[in-house]
Amino acid sequence: MPTESSGLDLAYDASSAPFFEGAAQGRLVLQRCGACETWMWPVKYRCVHCFAADVEWRPASGRATLYSLSVVHQQYPGFPHPYVIATVETDEGVRFNTTLVGDDVENMAIGSALMAEFDADEQPFTLPRFRRIP
């Protein structure tokens, strides 16, 4: 997460607000189809599977598996050097890019079991991060 020194003025918009509001309350909130129960990475307006309009925001389990990761060596203002970007796949079957926390995350094995965690004091808004669980 960049600090003010990153020069990026970040804010989320109304379409994605439930994700960020959920994160502020310590929950990974994703979208799910009320008709066929397919989980989706936001923002979708109809179900990616059955195309029903019944797409709702729901708290997910927060459990995920590490799908891939990259240690980023390019330097950007406000970011540590280096830092990690990871792709995770949640137990609900939704995949997205995020970051990892904990010891030696640069060498974390693909396939590691993860749990989302949240820092309610993070500025300008809380982001999900993932930590390896036994």
């Binding site: 960049p2 990026l8 989320y12 390019q74 995020t98 982001l127």
Partner: peptide, 15 residues
């Protein structure tokens, strides 16, 4: 352009 969920790319550092 950091609209919608794209704001996450800037927040996590996926440039």
């Amino acid at each position: 352009v950091w609209d919608g969920m794209n704001v996450l790319k800037a927040a996590y550092g996926e440039f």
